[in-house]
Design a protein around this nucleic acid. Structure first.
Length: 597
RNA sequence: GCGACCGUAGCUCAGCUGGAUAGAGCGCUUGCCUCCGGAGCAAGAGGUCAUGGGUUCGAAUCCCGUCGGUCGUACCA
């Protein structure tokens, strides 16, 4: 948004109300005029009332007076405290799309605002394949990283894989007992799914043992299953395996290594398909002992205290007392997180750290940040938990144990298959050679777009029937605008149209042409707003608006069949600018654009 | 119990640093291919913004209460 008449407005208003002494750097931003109002841009003068200490209507009257007389303005109408503007075609385009990279290359933030940001997301466990919940996390994480980088920050995405612990041993025990030395190769099953199958088998076996136990010992019937874990044979064996793992027992370690390598191979496929990339992957098996030494230091400094039972605690006032070391001297989750956070800081020296983690852990992160602050780390003020909501199904919550999860790989296949069918339906007998590649881009784009459309903090409902659509407010709708432009551009080239910088922009004076350019010009500030809010849905909504503005333009303003050659050229150039912005926006969301669809 | 978040159209969601007649998509009804791609465009029906107070010139938005819902409140992760 860079309109000359708007930029000149502050100086005029300052001279109109000199006694108010408005701040030197005060500037005005216009908004897109609501659809039911006549006009293209609107200036809301309620916002200026405090600055000038004048009635909003009075300021609006002054603003309208200035704008009415401005060369770029066709009409300026004051309604209450608003001034609605209709601009002249040439002026709109001069201030927006006329210069090739004016919008795309516009700085989103100043150098002083740029930060080095470490962002952690995904964080899967190596005992089961990823599901829709992980897909939301991955999508939010990678897109946020991409968005922050687009805004100008130096972004370092990292992963922290939970590759050890009792739950990992469960899959291993089940494999030892029921696996018959099978492998992903021998079964043809993707590694993470194979290991996940044993995790399920384990839980079945455990459940059977608990049922048997309860039948034999009626006095235990009222106990929760979790409490009986160490009463079962399989539970004891699992506990023993964890101890052996920690002791470095070679056979257990070898099995662990083998099974984890299968899972990682599987995860890599899933990540690759999504476009997930990390600068570094931390493994919990390498970091889980971190933090203990800092607990000792904290104890000496009096930040922590030893409770009567021997547990080391931290008093966090209003947010409670948190145990940071068990009475037997072993770590809790918090201990590891303290250690890992410090390590991450030392490894990368970021200005801030972001965790993309579900909102059920809000309290945990509050405590983590408070503890680090108490330990005296100044950078603890710059830690952010990007808390996002869960994904529910129409049938309720997803639960691994009850088998109601939507598997990530299956979902990808389903999306791509649907995209392929939709493409085949449209193309008739003329099946494109790149149909598979195209379907992949459309299907995965639709999925990511759907997940990013929601405000991250909200719990969302995923209805497979309703969510897997390609019409309306969807990724393909936005991609389609680009495909249309590609198609026109190709035909233009075939017809030998020449594109040079000599464009007569004043020919584009229809409402659709002006509104398209005006909408496009808001792109840099949308990127900024989305980055500040750490919310990709801001960008998603904007891209839908922009694609919508393009489709209206497309309908009303024929490019190739326009009468006049200069008009054809101006419209074609406009289309290419719009394609550049939509493409940049989708790319920022980690969504690709098919050449045709 | 305490804390956090949420309650907007039949459904899924925007809007929430107070400002015009509360928006979008889906679904429903109806138009639009002699015209660059209909994954499109245009129009219609559909809302006491959970509820009761308060602050304000003005409240979906801010404050308090009530009712519903979710999550958290571990020497689990």
């Amino acid at each position: 948004m860079n309109f000359k008449c708007i930029q000149e407005l502050p100086a005029f208003l300052k001279s109109a109300f000199p006694q108010a002494e408005a701040p030197e750097d005060w500037s005005v931003t216009a908004e897109i005029c609501p659809q039911n109002m006549e006009g293209e841009l609107t200036v809301n003068c309620f916002r200026f009332a405090r600055i000038f200490r004048q009635a909003p209507d009075k300021i609006a009257a002054k603003a309208a007076e200035f704008l009415s007389g401005h060369d770029d303005v066709e009409k300026a109408e004051q309604i209450k405290a608003f001034v609605n503007l209709t601009l002249k075609g040439g002026a709109v385009h001069r201030d927006t799309v006329a210069e090739e990279n004016a919008i795309l290359a516009a700085p989103v933030m100043s150098d002083a605002e740029k930060r080095r940001i470490l962002i952690e997301y995904s964080a899967p466990n190596t005992n089961k394949p990823q599901h829709l919940g992980h897909v939301r996390n991955n999508t939010l994480g990678m897109s946020l990283a991409s968005l922050l980088a687009r805004a100008g920050h130096d972004v370092i995405p990292i992963n922290l894989v939970n590759d050890r612990g009792i739950h990992i041993c469960k899959s291993m025990i089940a494999y030892q007992r029921f696996g018959n030395d099978c492998t992903p190769e021998s079964t043809g099953i993707k590694g993470d799914h194979l290991v996940g199958n044993f995790y399920v088998k384990y839980n079945d076996a455990l459940k059977a043992q608990i049922t048997e136990l309860k039948a034999n010992k009626p006095e235990l019937a009222d106990k929760a299953d979790d409490e009986l874990f160490l009463e079962t044979e399989i539970g004891i064996a699992t506990q023993k395996m964890l101890q052996d793992w920690e002791a470095g027992e070679s056979e257990v370690r070898a099995l662990w290594k083998k099974m984890n390598s299968w899972v990682f191979a599987g995860f890599n496929e899933t990540y690759e398909r999504m476009g997930v990339k990390f600068n570094h992957t931390y493994l919990e098996s390498e970091t889980y002992l971190l933090g203990k030494d800092i607990i000792q230091t904290g104890l000496e400094k009096g930040v922590f205290f030893k409770r009567e039972d021997g547990a080391v605690c931290c008093d966090l006032g209003k947010i409670g007392v948190k145990v940071v070391l068990r009475s037997d001297g072993t770590s809790v989750y918090m201990t590891q997180d303290i250690g890992t956070t410090i390590k991450k800081f030392e490894d990368y020296k970021p200005d801030s750290q972001i965790w993309v983690v579900g909102d059920e852990q809000i309290f945990h992160f509050q405590q983590l940040f408070a503890i680090l602050k108490k330990l005296g780390f100044e950078w603890a003020d710059n830690l952010h938990h990007m808390a996002y909501g869960m994904v529910n199904l129409p049938t309720g919550k997803m639960k691994s144990r009850e088998g109601t999860v939507v598997d990530a790989d299956d979902l990808f296949d389903e999306m791509v298959e649907l995209a392929k069918n939709a493409t085949l339906e449209r193309c008739g007998d003329d099946v494109p050679a790149d149909i598979d590649e195209r379907s992949e881009i459309i299907g995965m784009g639709a999925l990511k777009f759907m997940l990013l459309k929601f405000n991250p903090k909200t719990t969302i409902m995923f209805d497979p029937q309703a969510s897997l659509k390609f019409e309306g407010d969807t990724g393909p709708y936005v991609q389609y605008a680009c495909a249309r432009i590609n198609s026109i551009a190709q035909k233009a080239e075939e017809r030998g149209m020449v594109f040079d910088s000599d464009v007569n922009w004043s020919l584009l004076s229809s409402t659709e042409e002006k509104m398209l350019a005006i909408t496009a010009s808001f792109y840099p500030q949308i990127i900024r707003e989305a980055a500040e809010k750490m919310d990709c849905s801001v960008l998603v909504s904007y891209l839908l608006d922009l694609a919508k503005a393009f489709n209206r333009f497309y309908r009303e303003c024929p490019v190739l069949s326009a009468d006049d050659e200069a008009l054809r050229k101006a419209r074609m150039t406009m289309c290419l600018r719009i394609k550049g912005i939509i493409g940049d926006g989708l790319k920022t969301l980690t969504i690709s654009v098919p050449q045709a669809m």
